[in-house]
């Protein structure tokens, strides 16, 4: 092979070539996952780009039409375009999943760092409380939080996020305990680094690495949990086109119109699969393969 401009560092094509190489290495599964996530992101930010119809316009004359050229995913019992509703639903479902995960991860990071890096007493106290909270399945914990705060999309996100805090806190704490004993910290002390430098440049970044990976995959879990709460009528309520709420609304018509149920559910599954695949790739990248 001869040298082309794209192999010279600094040439814009060089970056493109590098990107192409990493895409080729990624494999078809990861590429599909990334593309799908991109599509979901576009749907969440600019649903108008993908869907022609208004998701809320009722057209009883066209109710329960099967998938056709005009309505790709058919219409529901009120004649609303299912495709438009699935596209517009991305925003509600993803927002629920992402905000819940963010709350859980940030809360977990704070509690976990305090426990892992603070004194023995603080660690003992925080972890005993976490132990007790971990005794409950996350969905039950979220349900209890909702019974206190009442139903609704914001409360559902808070409930799922709060319920996830103990799990994230444990991961951060155990990672902090490993990092705390890492030989490179001894090496940094021996080199003469200051306490603040060691804490902020070595301890915190290395501790939070596993959290980021876990949180990526956690968005999938939280999205499912959020749509489950909506399905049970405790999160986003119909007529808002959230995927779980659409399922709960459409399930009574499933016998005559399968498309009302199949497409929103498939949207959840596809989103969660993509998030998981990307999360795994991120984990491999961060943890690296053993040599």
């Amino acid at each position: 092979m001869t040298t082309t401009a794209s192999e010279i560092p600094g040439w814009p094509g060089f970056l493109a070539a590098r990107a192409t190489r990493s895409v080729l290495r990624a494999g078809p599964g990861l590429i599909a996952a990334v593309l799908l996530l991109g599509l979901v992101t576009v749907a969440a930010l600019w649903p108008g780009l993908l869907a022609r119809y208004d998701p809320d316009v009722i057209d009883l004359a066209a109710s329960l039409d099967g998938p056709n050229a005009a309505h790709w995913f058919g219409t529901d019992q009120l004649g609303r375009d299912v495709f438009a509703r699935v596209v517009h639903g991305a925003r509600h479902s993803l927002l629920l999943g992402i905000s819940a995960t963010a709350l859980g991860a940030v809360g977990g990071a704070m509690v976990g760092l305090a426990a892992g890096l603070g004194g023995r007493l603080l660690d003992g106290l925080l972890m005993r409380v976490a132990d007790i909270l971990l005794a409950f399945p996350e969905l039950l914990l979220a349900l209890v939080v909702i019974s206190v705060m009442g139903p609704g999309p914001v409360n559902a996100a808070v409930a799922i996020g709060v319920a996830a805090i103990p799990t994230y806190a444990r991961v951060v704490r155990s990672s902090a305990l490993v990092v705390r004993r890492a030989p490179y910290l001894d090496a940094a002390v021996a080199l003469g680094q200051s306490r603040a430098h060691i804490l902020f440049r070595h301890v915190v970044p290395n501790t939070l690495g596993p959290l980021l990976v876990l949180a990526t995959a956690g968005v999938g879990t939280a999205t499912i949990a959020g749509s489950a709460l909506s399905f049970l009528g405790l999160g986003t309520r119909p007529p808002v086109p959230e995927w779980g709420a659409m399922l709960s609304e459409g399930r009574n018509f499933v016998e005559s119109a399968w498309w009302i149920v199949v497409f929103p559910g498939a949207a959840i599954a596809a989103t969660v699969v993509s998030v998981t695949v990307v999360g795994r790739a991120a984990r491999l990248r961060v943890e690296g393969r053993p040599r």
């Binding site: 890492a182 030989p183 021996a190 440049r201």
Partner: peptide, 26 residues
């Protein structure tokens, strides 16, 4: 105290058995 040792640490340096472990992997 470590703060009293730190200014003199430059005089005494070390290399370890597991060099990989002694570097921040990031």
């Amino acid at each position: 105290a470590e703060s009293a040792r730190r200014p003199r640490r430059g005089d005494l340096q070390a290399i370890f058995q597991d060099p990989l472990g002694s570097f921040d992997p990031r």
